[in-house]
Each structure stands twice: as structure tokens, then as C-alpha cells.
Amino acid sequence: MRKHFRRLLALGTAVFTVFLPELVRAAGPAAEMLIVVADSRRVSAGWARYFVDSYNTNPLWFGLECTIITAFMGVTLGVITDQIMRHVGIDLTSRKIIEH
């Protein structure tokens, strides 16, 4: 009996966790979405135009782009700054890390 109860509890928790976002969405008074249109008339440069266009046309694609590009940029900057530090000649291996 207790075993069954535990299984049920596990299932209940799982369902609850998975569907909570839906619940949050459904809760509260329904208000209209805020849609933002990026003003591509005010950007001319290629890069900015690229992002603005994908923002306006395909939100999911824009999300994916943001993720990939920030990750990529993070790693690139990490590599570059590491090179610079090595070039300057400051020893980064013997530092102590302050943890919180």
C-alpha cells in the first residue's frame, strides 16, 4: 500500500512540475501580449540588420541565434584574453580562488 502511495506521489510530483509553466500561463487575468517590432528603418549596417530581420520574422530562430552567438562570443573572448595575459606574462596559475 505504502509503495503504491509513494509511486503515486512520484507521479503526481512529476506531472505537477512539468505542467506548472502552463498553470502559470493560465493563472491571473488574461492580458494582451506586448509585441515588439524592431525598427529596421533605423539600422543600415549589415550585422544589425541581420539581427533585426530575424527578430521580426522568426522569434524561435532569433532565440537560437542569441544562444549560439553568446556562447561562441564567450569562448572567443576567453581565448583571446587568455592569449593576452600569457603574452603580458602574468602567472595566472598560482592564484588563490576566493569562494563564496
Binding site: 509585441i35 515588439v36 544589425a48 539581427f51 527578430y55 522569434p59 524561435l60 532569433f62 532565440g63 537560437l64 541565434e65 542569441c66 544562444t67 552567438i69 553568446t70 562570443m73 564567450g74 573572448l77
Partner: peptide, 19 residues
């Protein structure tokens, strides 16, 4: 990043500058 990007609430240029 993905979910806020898909919701259209990331200013990618500001991310570049800050990074």
C-alpha cells in the same frame, strides 16, 4: 538566453558590448 530570445526580450547588441 534561448527562451528570452524566443520571447523577443534580448538586446543582443548590449550583450556584445557588455561581454
Amino acid at each position: 538566453t534561448f527562451t528570452y530570445g524566443a520571447k523577443g526580450r534580448i538586446e543582443i547588441y548590449a550583450v556584445f558590448v557588455m561581454l
